[in-house]
């Protein structure tokens, strides 16, 4: 999909088919083989798979949409901080590539972001950020209602 990284994903209020298609477009290219492998990935992982895995060049896990794809909602500026041209994940990807990690996939970066946040933030941190956004709203709408 052209310019998929510029699409405003906050438009996707209802995760219907179209929204899911859009979201799929923001992930890496999918192949039926990826999905099939993802349904029972653990069982399919043979000793040979484990032995031949190259940590520098191969993604840690397949796309496996049914297991890995989720809707995440946030304000445009929040998403830009994460995924924009100056975003956190852009910087992380550059760091990884400079450390000779190849095929750095969006799914791995999204997972790493959420994993890092989950490990380091407490419920109170999230509640504080929630309240802060509510308070920001008192100064005016945070989004144009299209």
């Amino acid at each position: 999909m052209p310019f998929d990284d510029l699409a405003d994903e906050s438009d996707e209020a209802d995760p219907g088919d179209e929204a899911l298609d859009e979201l799929a477009g923001t992930l890496t290219e999918d192949s039926p083989a990826d999905d099939a492998a993802g349904t029972d990935e653990t069982e399919a992982a043979t000793e040979k798979d484990i032995a031949s895995y190259d940590i520098q060049s191969e993604p840690a896990f397949p796309t496996a949409k049914t297991q890995t794809q989720h809707s995440v909602y946030c304000l445009p500026e929040t998403w830009d901080t994460i995924d924009g041209a100056s975003g956190l994940l852009f910087e992380a990807e550059i760091m990884l590539r400079r450390d000779d990690y190849e095929a750095v996939q969006k799914r791995e970066l999204h997972n790493a972001l959420l994993q890092a946040a989950a490990q380091q933030l407490t419920a109170a941190d999230i509640a504080d950020a929630f309240v802060e956004t509510r308070e920001d709203r008192t100064s005016g709408p945070l989004l144009d209602d299209e």
């Binding site: 310019f3 998929d4 041209a85 994940l89 852009f90 750095v104 970066l109």
Partner: peptide, 19 residues
């Protein structure tokens, strides 16, 4: 091919060169 799976995949020429 590599751009397709990169973050900010349409914005890298702007970010790294033009801007």
């Amino acid at each position: 091919t590599n751009l397709k799976s990169a973050m900010a995949s349409s914005q890298r020429l702007n970010r790294n060169v033009v801007d």
